[in-house]
Design a protein around this nucleic acid. Structure first.
Lengths: 233, 233
DNA sequence: TCGCTTCCGTTATAAGTTCTAACTCACCGA
DNA sequence: TCGGTGAGTTAGAACTTATAACGGAAGCGA
């Protein structure tokens, strides 16, 4: 489909093998987690012997970095696509949940336990910013709608804080919006986007890590309740 | 201090060595993460040679299981102690945050990326239930206080949902309270305890994984804002 | 006090891992 | 046609977890 048809035959071959390596890596990660990823096993399953993989990735770390990048990219694409299709915050929440459940280990590669020494490459942080921008758009729209409804005298607890003008956190965010650099979002929208991110991450992380198993309730309903509390719809 | 002075000299020695092994393991985990934990390195640093450790732990997994158990235990103790000292939900939130920041890798050992095959031993889930019980106590007290204030006609957005009686999630929780088996908590309190857990986990997980770095705002204020939104105080 | 048993720590070994080095060979381009 | 580039190979070093077999010391009962 979106195969890179650019460059010399050798470059095409190289890119193709790199993709195949990543595919096997994902398979292995899904089965046994990222920490158990073995270059040797991948090579064997591809019918070639150990050190051959080093032509394509200089080591385990570089392969994992590529996988992290792909994981980030897939989330950013999923979220952006939904937003372009006109989804609101609730729609984005559904997309996020679907993406997470689709492949929990992929989710954890992005949001899971960090390795002390490891520093994320700068381009992944730019992808993170892209995701955040989409979130900010939707949050700004939601906040604007809530404000309008509020002005109508409705008493719906629209977002995170009610009435009482700007809370301390909103004032702080208004002054520390490096992450929303040039985004025209109100303090309430900043707060909403952040709460959306952290609260849904909270439910998803605990659910996917299995901390809800045996508790009896349906995680999806809890997730929906958090979305409802955020959007007030 | 709380050294086990029970049993034969041999048992005491054995327990002491096991503790020493765990201490070195924590040191190593703090430095390079749990996935990089090496039995060999621990042995070398203790002045003995590789296979000697297998007298004390049958393998890497058993050692890590012991560490997870200790991590769980330390959180449960911290939380219980605070509750016994009369702390409310806000106080428990502070304790949780302090515990998490004190040793991020310990936090991630409990709440971080799970290993696909691994199943938590039953006693850790009982410790988790103990933590949840403390949370439920505090949540029930908070919910009761909020209800009383509500009856006074105050309009404080006390907890998660406002007015409008029972939300769908509360109805669901009322029917699926296996995790709060014999705890006399109202549906609102169940919901509050769950929201407390998931929301604070969300902020802490993202913060400790470094997803807030470079964003500019103060994670502690965001955490405090979530606590404020939960307790409405 | 003697002797038996238990258990600790050792070395040797097997099988696995990442990763480097050196070599062969095939293909691609000029 | 010929040379360069790069893929894949085997060999090997330095690790890892884990098992097996052996020595010896320490505790425990008679």
């Amino acid at each position: 489909m979106t195969e890179s048809d650019a460059g010399t035959p050798r470059e095409r071959y190289r890119a193709q093998v790199q993709e195949e390596i990543k595919a096997h890596a994902w398979e292995q990660i899904r089965a046994s987690g990222a920490s158990a990823l073995s270059l040797n096993a991948i090579a064997k399953r591809m019918g070639l012997s150990g050190p051959a993989l080093y032509r394509y990735y200089s080591g385990r770390d570089e392969l994992i970095t590529a996988l992290v990048r792909d994981a980030y990219r897939s989330l950013a694409d999923a979220v952006r696509l939904q937003a372009e299709a006109g989804a609101d915050l609730a729609g984005l929440a559904r997309t996020l949940r679907r993406w997470a459940l689709e492949d929990p280990q992929r989710y954890f590669l992005v949001y899971g336990t960090p390795i002390p020494g490891y520093e994320a490459p700068p381009d992944t942080t730019s992808i993170a910013a892209e995701i955040m921008a989409v979130l900010l758009d939707a949050a700004a729209a939601a906040a604007a709608a809530a404000a309008a409804e509020d002005a109508d005298g409705a008493t719906v607890d629209a977002a995170v804080d009610d009435a009482a003008s700007s809370s301390p956190i909103e004032a702080h965010l208004a002054d520390h919006r490096a992450w929303a650099a040039d985004h025209p979002a109100s303090p309430a929208a900043l707060r909403l986007a952040l709460a959306f991110w952290t609260r849904l991450s909270g439910v998803l992380s605990l659910e996917l890590a299995g901390h809800f198993t045996g508790m009896g309730f349906d995680p999806e309903l809890l997730y929906a309740a958090e979305v409802q509390a955020l959007t007030g719809s």
